[in-house]
Design a protein around this nucleic acid. Structure first.
Lengths: 230, 230
DNA sequence: TATCCATCTCAGCCAATTCTCAGTTCCCTC
DNA sequence: GAGGGAACTGAGAATTGGCTGAGATGGATA
């Protein structure tokens, strides 16, 4: 297994979450370690020296904010993506994004988290990858959170953007419905899988009205983004 | 019997299923072990250390999800293909394709399962194997779910695709009707065996219109895919 | 509280796919 | 070359899968 990508430390007291996130990160080639407590996080940072930490604000012993404070106190500048519950803590975390850190509210979707991971790593210079993705005359810019088709800017909602992004990253590869649902929708989404169809329909209307239709249905399997074949 | 291929562990409480799957895997050169309980699966993983596990979600003692959780907890990263009933479980299995794991709903066809096995092993293991199969000027690309003949893309339905894929994997080997029906159709397919002829006819029309005809009938036995011999 | 907007649910419609069946053709044997 | 079994193919019935419009829900904002 590939473990020579950037090191990422994942800290949460729920093993379900750390596992989910760790698996997704490993799959993308990151070198991942996990911890379940604030204290564990601090030791892991000094031993593992990760390029990025994903840190739950709510932890059994020392909370995430305090972990950040202690690390800063010790001169440790590792960038952090905080995980927070939707309610509470809102204001506490708000002041945190100033330092280039970021936060994601639970429940999040994997695509959303991965997008933030890339943005933060890019900002901190450890990645030279550009923030732009494209296929034919479709362009997507992560930093600007902007999509263009045929030169025209297209307004997308959050979910539409995540869906398009996931399709674009995997351009040319057929994605199954469950792959898409698992990556683009919140990890505890338990609803009707037909939302996906609704959103594909939205996307087509917004970005696929120009000529070569790029979003293709593979009946009985899933969807692909690609230039039409002869 | 060839047992030096990758190790695969098959776990299901119905012996019919484990046997069916085990036989198909052995036939393709895998080294197979089976288990009937969640506990059995966990011990087997540590003793047999398989490259892949095929795991029923519904088990008498510990369910499949819990098995995954415990293995992960113990730092065991074996990739998994889950087997699930079509109804229910939708939400339980949800979120599993994130780490590169996958699932197949019962009743499945062997060909479908084998395709997933290859995909998962390719993703997790040596990147060496490509997702492409070919014979003469016939090409099949699993990632894109795309077939080309003589350079031209060919539109195939799902069943046509599975059939062609099965013939292509076994190119040069004569397959009997029942082998084909057992592999390409769902294992509880109870219909008329003449569907196969219909589908061979469809395939010939779509992919075998170019010159050297590759799909050959072996009268009284079955079909082969091969370049015609002089 | 009222309003807006993103998200999700659902049902009706349409089209593609799968399967059945019957008539025809092909091939082997005698 | 006749007969019979096997395979091929076309037509259409049954089923499934996917698309879309309309509207419910719920969170955010003013």
């Amino acid at each position: 297994m590939n473990t020579d990508g950037p090191r990422v430390l994942v800290v949460d007291d729920e093993p379900n979450i750390t596992e989910l996130v760790a698996m997704a990160l490993r799959y993308e080639g990151f070198n991942v370690k996990t911890a379940v407590t604030g204290r564990g996080a601090i030791t892991a940072v000094s031993q593992f020296s990760p390029a990025l930490m994903i840190l739950d604000v709510m932890l059994p012993d020392i909370d995430g904010i305090e972990v950040l404070r202690r690390l800063n106190g010790a001169g440790n500048k590792v960038p952090i993506i905080f995980l927070t519950a939707k309610d509470a803590t809102e204001d506490k975390v708000h002041g945190l994004t100033v330092g280039g850190d970021d936060y994601v509210t639970k429940p999040f979707s994997i695509e959303e988290l991965m997008a933030r991971v890339r943005v933060v790593l890019r900002r901190h210079g450890s990645e030279t990858e550009s923030s732009k993705l494209s296929l034919a005359d479709l362009e997507l810019d992560d930093d600007a959170h902007e999509v263009r088709r045929h030169g025209h800017a297209v307004e997308l909602t959050n979910t539409e953007y995540r869906l398009l992004r996931y399709l674009l990253i995997n351009a040319g590869r057929v994605l199954t419905r469950s792959q898409i649902l698992d990556h683009v929708w919140h990890y505890d989404f338990g609803g009707d899988a037909s939302v996906l169809e609704t959103y594909v329909s939205y996307l087509r209307r917004k970005v696929d009205r120009y000529d070569p239709p790029l979003i293709q249905t593979v009946r009985g399997v899933g969807y692909v983004l690609r230039t039409p074949r002869k």
